[in-house]
Computed example of a mutant assay.
Amino acid sequence: MTDDLPPGGGATGEPAGVPRAAPAPDAPVPTVGRGGRRRDQAVALGWLVVAWMLLWGDVSWGNLVAGLVIGVAVLLFFPLPPVTFGGRVRPRALLVFAATFVAELVSASVHVAAVALRFGYRPRGAIIAVPLRVRTDLNLALTAEVISLVPGTLILDVDRAAGVLYVHVLDVRGPDDLAESRQRVLAVERRIVRAIGSPDEVRRLDLEPAERRNHP
């Protein structure tokens, strides 16, 4: 396995060379009203149902009802902290995200199948650290979920404070493949943010690394 983490990490075992997030200034926690709380729970329930159906790999009324029951139970017995969705749903960008995800899913499945069927070939793997440009919990979770659903890539760890995903990639032949894998992760993040991110998060996609550190 090829470890792409930069050498010379500190005592904490974290790799050097990964931009660290500047600590966010103390700010009052926004109050979430009852209507906003119910909306957030409805959105969370919808995502839980989608994740449930993806895990089963079958879109049916039975799975839909089971997903609703499981989702309600999760939200009832394991309540999430109040997090307000401040993004904006853009139907066109959401359609582009969905179409691109399906295309990458098919392409990656064919590639992994070809690697598995190649007699005598031993693919090399690598672990890469990918700092995201938008460090919100929602963006981290969605980007990590989408990356893990694509065959050949798997999220191993998430540094929530720094907004870094540690991704295992399959069939790495050289530095160009590592750079391409990083760009693929960042492209997924860009499509997600453009589909449901806030205007400020969309602008943050084009900031330089130094500027991003000044915009926690």
Rank of each mutant, 00 (worst) to 15 (best):
T2P: 02
D4G: 15
L5F: 01
P7F: 00
G8M: 08
G9W: 00
A11M: 07
P19R: 01
A24Q: 13
P25L: 06
P30C: 09
T31F: 12
V32I: 11
V32R: 04
G33I: 01
R37T: 03
R37D: 04
L48R: 13
L48V: 01
V49Q: 00
W52H: 15
S60C: 01
G62M: 02
N63L: 01
G67A: 01
G67E: 00
V69Q: 03
I70D: 02
V72L: 14
P82T: 07
G86P: 03
V89Y: 15
R90Q: 13
L95D: 02
F97D: 07
A99E: 05
T100C: 09
F101C: 10
V102R: 04
A103D: 05
H111R: 15
V115H: 00
F119T: 12
Y121V: 08
R122Y: 10
P123Q: 12
A126V: 09
A129L: 06
V130N: 00
R133C: 12
T136R: 14
T143V: 15
A144C: 11
G152Q: 11
L154W: 12
V158I: 15
A162M: 02
G163K: 02
Y166L: 10
V167L: 11
E189I: 05
E189P: 09
R191H: 07
R194A: 10
S198V: 05
R203H: 14
R204T: 14
R212D: 03
